[in-house]
Amino acid sequence: MAENVKELVKRYRPDLSLAQYGRVFTDTTSFMEIGYGDVISIGGLHYLVLRDEAERCYGIEDPKYWVKRCLVLETGERAILKLVFHESFDLELGNLKIRCYRSPEKEARILDLVRGDLRFMQGKSRHDSAGNVVRILEVISGKRLDQAVYEIEADHKTYFREHFPGILEKFMGSCEAIAFLHGHGELHGDIRRDHLWIEHRTGRYRWIDFDYTYDFAESPFGLDIFGLGSLLVFLAGKGIYRIQELEEMGFGDRFLDSLTNEDFSLLYVNRIVNLKKIFPYIPDSLNNVLLHFSQGAEVFYESVDEFLADLRPCLGHLMEAQK
């Protein structure tokens, strides 16, 4: 007879005491029923569920019931288990709605593709007793890149001269990682500020969460490229700038009236991407890359390689300015 949770904990983690001992699951189909104190038995290991993961969105905690934060009883390591949850929904990007699908199979495939490539989160997938593709992910000990940048205590000019060149260099490495996915016919699918993390121990930038996908389009990687562009705008500006932020910074009516639609993001129409207007010391080479993501853009990047080809010289210009 299979061991129950109490027996498993006693055997592997005798020092551990739980507020409640739940059930052992080998079939994770009903993920809503799996919670704290339960154990998921898969791939020869036992994962004690500690809690559901959650995302904070607009200050509200959004629980992800299909993502479980776990303790591996055999090893004592932490792990995240993503259980199968097929859903499709309209993702709102600015004024556009895009049909988005959550695909466990896609994420499992990418985990295989990037095994050992630390520009990405690492993990493996295993089938549970019902055939569900469970992804077993490492826990990255680190911080969201955008938070880390936002918290740098420096005015923009100092940040731009002293911190940004190093950040840009690493960010370009992250872009190369996305180009690697594209080269293998895969897309990240959800390039947002909170999906690029800095690992505490190494300072390495690492992409997380690959389970979003979309129907094919003529430019299959356009969404990823736009995500990279929006992230670059954030990093170059050390934040997002809308009219409200500019008013708070003391820009007057004359300046605000000088802004045109062409200065704002193609998708997020209230965000300024022509950052040189706010920070005149931003080199033209970099600002021109940013303007590819503006409403004034006439030419779009069709590949990450094109984006990087324009971005690489910018790093040289910034490094020279540092000397």
Binding site: E218, S219, L266, A297
Partner: peptide
């Protein structure tokens, strides 16, 4: 298609 749609999805006819 709008400019934003063309960036994100591309356009067969434009190509």
């Amino acid at each position: 298609v709008s400019k934003a749609e063309e960036f994100l999805f591309g356009s067969v006819s434009n190509k």
